[in-house]
Design a binder for these strands. Sequence first.
DNA 1: ATCGGTACCTGCACGC
DNA 2: TGCGTGCAGGTACCGA
Length: 264
Amino acid sequence: MPELPEVETICRALAPRLEGRRLLEAEFFERRVLEGPPARVAARLRGQTVRTLRRHGKHLLVEFDSGSLLAIHLGMTGHLHWGGEPGPHTRAVLTFDNGRVLYDDPRMFGRLELCEQLPRRIARLGPEPLHIPAAEFVERLHARRGAIKPLLLNQTFLRGLGNIYTDEALFRAGIHPRAIAARLAPDRARKLHRAIRQVLNAAIASGGTTISDYVDTEGQPGGFQFQLQVYGRTGEPCPRCAAPIRRIVIAQRGTHFCPQCQRR
DNA sequence: ATCGGTACCTGCACGC
DNA sequence: TGCGTGCAGGTACCGA
């Protein structure tokens, strides 16, 4: 499911509910999604009060008054629900003094980690795509010799882009997914920077993208799937030039683009 | 640095 | 109906 706009949507919904609230009980039903022994993590969490909720790339960070952090990554199929009943894929339940959060994750690619400070793995990720200035983006881009698509998916380059928004941003910028990053002319690199911002902001405004199963914390689907121009539209006409959208595989990921509008 | 491959998991759509 | 196949929003790790 979740790339930056989906995690942002979840964060905005949960922050007002959780900030200032006390965590009464943490239950973990699947140790694979948890860093550390469930009983020990639960004991450390019990009684803590939430100071803030924030997003860091695709991670959701719950910061407690003690300074401890609960870092949540939803993987491919992780969901957070406010309230509701646990189901077959519920891997954790966090009970607060005003309600509970269910963590569901069928494929269990997601991770929950309780730590005293941001783990290095997360801290060393690249800048936020919505914060990085154009000049810095272009400079970082020009330092890389690989193809642009795998680079945008690389979280140490920028944190938060996934397969959907990468394809959409490249389409809007008119750049071929196999184009070499370092060889992009500065104006085209700046255009890509703009396209990334536009796509992410539009997706956040729509509450994210629902392809098959993403829903927000209230169980509502997002709306950005209706604004996708290439992702998942193999064979359909390009909205700009009507050429059939093509699907290829780059870095093991399905990649959608218009062969006419995105020339090498 | 970069690339390709594999691995981790389950569920779903599809063709036969 | 049942079964095999391929695909899926993510990331880590390996060797080349």
